[in-house]
Amino acid sequence: MKDLTKTLRQISLSAWFGIVVVSVYILVAFFAPVIAPYGETEIVGGVFEPWSDEFLLGTDNLGRDLYSRLVYGARNTVGIAILTTLLAFAFGSLMGVLSATIGGWLDQLMGRSVDVLMAIPQLIFALLLLTIFGTSIINMILIIALLDSTRVYRLSRAAAVNVVAMDYIEAAKLRGEGLGYLIFREILPNITAPLVAEFGLRFCYVFLLISALSFLGLGIQPPTADWGSMVRESANLISFGEVTPLIPALAIALLTVAVNFIADWFLHRSTGLKG
């Protein structure tokens, strides 16, 4: 308990800001049906109605309530980004640890393939793969997870190589433990700190990439409420001095900044860097 209060007091102001913002997002995502006055795809009024008591942020190009869609967007956009990042981490870290443990030709093969995958800019590669496999949410999640897992692979391999050289791994091998035991019981628990710190940063990256693709009309498809495509749908209003299209974009930006603040603080704490 004392430790907890001590940790809480050491959290920097910017990290507190991040924690509060992220908590609000999580609450909104969970209680979306309670918070939103209308349904996600429900057409409730005229096209592009202005802000009013009935429609807090007005309506969009089809007459759907923008405020409700913003609330549901927290669920869809953030949920899909988290799912993608988790997939990337599951695949990337498993592969990274595997090639650090087995070494030899597998390590060489994985390393060189990752080098090549990373040489092509991520957005361009994602666009190429989306053309080949077609644009759908599932395809987008798998493609971004695959492309992002290369970064996770690099990190987890680098961290695991240090662990593999330890005596207790040697001891476990001599005991006759299998590969699964080595990876899940001995190596992974010892590299969680850098992986967790990286998770925040990778999440931001994936989140921005998904938003960008959705904004281009190639990511999350209508009628699913999503912040990237919401900006696209109402973008024309901005030339008339309306701030409404900026709000979903602001929701994206705010979450990214908040997660960055938390990740920054966590990184400082776990590496013992001060200042």
Binding site: L208, A212, G228, V231, I238, L246, A253, T256, N260
Partner: peptide, 10 residues
Amino acid sequence: SYPEFFVAYI
């Protein structure tokens, strides 16, 4: 940390 299109629209 801002998406490019946010900066653009601002």
